[in-house]
Design a binder for these strands. Structure first.
Lengths: 144, 144
DNA sequence: CTTATTTAAGACAAAATTGTCTTTAAATAA
DNA sequence: TTATTTAAAGACAATTTTGTCTTAAATAAG
């Protein structure tokens, strides 16, 4: 469904959010340890997400990654997916046609429209904060 | 969402079904031309689907691919996806956790459950025949 | 100013996926 | 039997994705 880069990015962002909610700025090593994702790869994804203003990165001693209240509450899953994978998953044709719409649909088009739009809605309505509170409360986990 | 191999396979099967419904057995070259998929790659996928009894392949002069009535009507999209990509898309975790369920869910689990199950249901309820009739009637297309 | 610590950037490498080509096997027709 | 036609199988190649490593840049502390 999502690329590995995207999965790593979402995990990392949710973890960073939980720590920022406690006032803790975290280094990439800590992120990697708590998400089970490869450190250098995750760092690269976080660099990209930082450029998209989804989190802050601070260089130097006592540096690391953190999210402000606005980022934690207003960033939606869809923004991360868009930044990392693009919007193909939300808009693309199930059979890979360049264009596919009600006018000239692929055979799966009408079966697929609702699935895709439900996915899009869910991802646009779910904030990082929503996911972070589940992790903080112990209701959900990032590693297994 | 699906691999290229899977996309090619679905397109090819739907096209072959439309031709079988007219009593026409088709060669791989014809399939490739009418689906816009690479010939050798598509041939490989069709070989796999033939082993899964989703269609028949016949060697030699006047050979090619065809589907019988049962295959056309009873084969569901989910079977093709399962044969080519496996069932990960229907059962796997959105964040790539090895195991992820209500007992130990990833942060996205509950948001994702319905999307995945709707997708599964749709794919298990849509037959190749359902898609073929749209293509025959000109309501849908395979190339663009 | 120098040193240590951290992310940034990009080259590099490994693995998976996508795609092609050649050879083989099977089936048919002559 | 022989030649022809087709898919099957698998080696090979190209591309994309995933992942690592090295060097640079920024920042803080002494």
């Amino acid at each position: 469904m999502f690329s590995k880069a995207c999965e790593h990015g979402i995990k990392a962002v949710v973890y960073i959010a939980t720590q920022s909610m406690n006032g803790h700025r975290v280094k990439i090593t800590e992120v990697s340890e708590h998400t089970g994702t490869p450190e250098a790869f995750t760092a690269k994804v976080l660099g990209l997400l930082s450029k998209h203003n989804i989190l802050h990165s601070i260089k130097g001693p006592y540096g690391g990654f953190e999210m402000d209240q606005k980022q934690i509450h207003e960033t939606k899953l869809a923004e991360i997916v868009n930044a990392v994978d693009g919007n193909h998953i939300f808009t693309g044709c199930a059979l890979g046609l360049k264009e596919c719409n009600a006018d000239k649909p692929c055979p799966m088009h009408y079966n697929f429209v609702k699935i895709r739009s439900d996915l899009k809605q869910m991802m646009e309505n779910t904030s990082i904060h929503d996911l972070a509170i589940g992790l903080i409360s112990g209701e959900s986990i990032l590693i297994r």
